[in-house]
């Protein structure tokens, strides 16, 4: 229950950990767009250079970043099968009666796999080097300009940070309820499908009841401490960009520009 892969923060105290979350989020956005530019396989070289630099400075192991890919292997195989059956462009490789395999089936699958892999590595670097709360603060500051058109940036950030804050509390609660129900004879592991669903219900209903109860008490506590979502608030944590941030953003833009040029050649 404790190894939920939420992109865990690793307190490694590297140069990338200390970067401003705003610049890290912006860089991720730019790199995501770059990954999806149709620049051919050569276009991934600048991105790989960028990722290698990011991994080097964040002291993350490539295997750590790739771990998140494991559950996706079946999806990749499925994609390949579909592409082999459907793709009708490129050079004809195999032709057994009605069964024809074209080269594009493999290149298209390769594109998708490479893109997803790159995206996952980029996201892992972000979440592993940025505390959830800093990430929230970064999102809030980046959404600030949209407040003029009625987007409640601060409220969104507050909701995310409270949700993150309560994940461990609710995991504890789930374990407690599981033990309580198990001691009353509920079997969560064995039995037919209907029995299992019934067993899970006995877990979910009390969990929801207690979550609502907590939400109620939390709202009281927040109100008693003077919280008003519509009022202006000062902030304890202030974000500040340094030269590292500017350099990293420039690097990302260079990679983006290179791939954009590669699209035209």
């Amino acid at each position: 229950m404790n190894n939920i892969a939420l992109g865990r923060y690793l307190p490694l105290n590297t140069i990338i950990n200390k970067m401003d979350p705003r610049s890290k989020i912006l860089i991720l956005l730019v790199m995501m767009i770059t990954v999806f530019l149709p620049a051919g396989f050569i276009g991934y070289v600048p991105i790989l250079i960028f990722i290698a630099t990011a991994l080097y400075f964040s002291k993350l192991k490539l295997t750590y970043a790739l771990r998140a890919l494991k559950p996706m292997i079946w999806m990749f195989i499925f994609l390949l099968v579909i592409n082999v059956l459907v793709m009708r462009t490129g050079t004809l490789l195999i032709s057994w009666g009605w069964f024809k395999v074209y080269s594009d089936a493999f290149s298209q699958t390769a594109y998708i796999i490479i893109r997803l892999t790159l995206m996952i590595i980029l996201c892992t670097v972000l979440t592993a080097t940025t505390k959830p709360l800093d990430l929230t603060l970064g999102i809030e500051k980046l959404l600030k300009p949209f407040e003029k058109i009625g987007l409640p940036a601060h409220v969104i950030a507050m909701m995310i940070s409270i949700a993150l804050r309560f994940i461990p509390t609710l995991i504890d609660e789930t374990n407690r309820i599981m033990n309580a129900q198990a001691s009353r004879g509920v079997d969560l592991e064995n039995g037919t499908m209907t029995e299992k669903i019934r067993a899970v219900l006995s877990l979910i209903v009390p969990l929801f009841v207690s979550a609502f109860d907590r939400a109620d008490q939390l709202a009281d506590a927040m109100e008693a401490r003077g919280y008003d979502p519509s009022a202006t608030r000062t902030r304890y944590k202030v974000l500040k960009m340094t030269n590292v941030d500017y350099f990293a953003m420039a690097f990302a833009l260079v990679v983006f520009a290179t791939d954009l040029v590669l699209c035209w050649i």
Partner: peptide
């Protein structure tokens, strides 16, 4: 647990201060 709003001790103490625009 249900009155701990910040993600760390310092953030939680800061919560009320933020609301009061300190």
């Amino acid at each position: 647990d249900n009155q701990f709003i910040g993600s760390t001790v310092a953030d939680d103490i800061a919560f009320g201060l933020e609301n009061h625009c300190v």
